[in-house]
Amino acid sequence: MAPRAELVHWAFAAGFLLLGLILLAEVIVGSEVFAMRPWRLYLWPSLAFGIGVLLWPVAVFFTNSTLHMLAHGSWAEVAMLAGAVELALVRGKLKSRWWTLSLCFTLLVSSAAFLIHEQNPWFFSRSAFLHHAIGWTLLVAAIFPLGQALQPRKALWGAGFALTWVVLAVMLFCDRDVAPIFGHLSRFAGGGQ
């Protein structure tokens, strides 16, 4: 019934890539130009909210380990809430720029979930390496929303945040050992023949 794990990873990687590209577009053209079409401002928060909602089925349908269910559940929750907060900021329901820190919290929780649920060392396998890399990338990237809250006009923070999602998308695309991308199949890898 459940789709193969790598398909699910690729689907969410595509979502992250789109998220990163939208954010990158805003950084490249500048916030004023980007905001000339108000609907554009809703794009990435809506996508983040949608990714959060769609992660719930992943949490409850992939239950072959408790740890994975808990990790997927925590990502679903923080992504949904972060998307909601950003949408509320765009709509003017929330005013304080400090709400941007919710993204910081989201990245920290996501990072912790990645690092805790990957119990193997870095060089154990490709997926282990990438899980560690994704976890630490998320941890380091938490500085970008913090910077945005402190210095909203500085483009560096926005650019860093946007590139974070592009990098995460690439890593997630090649996260499965069984995925025939950037490497060969391991003879032990699940499903590989």
Partner: peptide, 11 residues
């Protein structure tokens, strides 16, 4: 590490 996956994926 990306080019040569290790012994297994997950458990």
């Amino acid at each position: 590490a990306l080019a040569f996956p290790g012994a297994a994926f997950a458990h």
